[in-house]
């Protein structure tokens, strides 16, 4: 791997990909993913992953971040779609509630597309304002 990064290959066909990957991995050295390295290292170490290369950790972090972003984007689309279906005369009343909120309803729909089945109970008492004023969390 060090060889890959330090020796850019002549550009043709497969070596193009090689160069792109090498460049990407090198760029990860400067990129700081939202998911902190320490967290990724901790969980990778828990799963038996052994590699001293920080770029691989960053790659995993970026891939995870992308996965989460994809799921969250789907959930956001679900949320927007749900809000757009509200009848227009009621929309003024609910203008206050028209904030984009990540809810279990949207998230479970989004996750089901990624092969994760999440079901939460119908009577689950979860307030939308939970944590806004940092009250004690009670679920």
């Amino acid at each position: 791997m060090n060889g890959q990064t330090s020796h850019p290959q002549p550009k043709d066909g497969r070596h193009d990909d090689d160069a792109a990957l090498t460049e990407f991995l090198a760029s990860l050295m400067d990129y700081t993913p939202t998911i902190p390295d320490e967290l990724v290292e901790h969980y990778l170490a828990k799963s038996g992953f052994q590699c001293p290369d920080i770029r691989l950790t960053r790659l995993v972090a970026v891939a995870t971040q992308k996965f989460i972003a994809d799921v969250a984007t789907d959930a956001l689309q679900q949320c927007k779609a749900r809000q757009s279906t509200i009848i227009k005369d009621k929309r003024d009343k609910q203008q206050k509630d028209k904030r984009l909120i990540l809810t279990m309803e949207d998230l479970s729909k989004a996750l089901s597309e990624y092969g994760v089945n999440v079901k939460h109970q119908e009577y689950f008492a979860d307030t939308p304002s939970a944590g806004l004023d940092s009250p004690p969390r009670d679920e």
Partner: peptide, 10 residues
């Protein structure tokens, strides 16, 4: 991504 708030459980 544009979320303004979230449910804790989510």
């Amino acid at each position: 991504l544009g979320f303004q708030s979230f449910n804790q459980s989510a």
